[in-house]
Amino acid sequence: MRIRKMKKSFKRSLWAFHINTGSCNACDIEILATLMPRYDAERFGIKLVGTPRHADVLLVTGPVTEKIRDKVIRVYEQVPDPKLVIVIGGCGSTTGVYQESYAVTGPVDNCIPVDVFIPGCPPRPEAILYGVARAWEKLEKIMKEGSKNAS
């Protein structure tokens, strides 16, 4: 069922920009592992890009430290609409083990709107793929509604 839905939504490739807001790198290497030959997210056209201005999706990891907060907001503003934010990992979703820290101002939805949370410390590559697919559906929906409103 889901596969059929996914097929329907794969109209164009999805470009993602990854921003680390103070994570421990575990989620970051799992994102890379998702793109590698074993899981091969690139066969769906999912690609990491080097600048937020080319991206459809923002992948955010980490609990948002105080020093980086402004930069996260700035990167979010640079992503063109329609855009989605996916939070990867437990600390981005809830600040996880880093709660009570004076240097952490997260979780991520404290500073930018979030569409999909992928829990896990770190989430497995399969979970990341699934989360991205869910986000994709949402993006297609937004675009469809957008074009309806325009016409």
Binding site: G22, K67, I68, S101
Partner: peptide, 24 residues
């Protein structure tokens, strides 16, 4: 930029909790 003050939070975690904090 990703200073999370782990040394400071560890003062409020017991010895076992600290292991899992340090793993991260």
């Amino acid at each position: 930029y990703t200073h999370r003050a782990i040394e400071v939070i560890s003062k409020e975690r017991n010895f076992i909790q600290t292991i899992y904090l340090l793993e991260r």
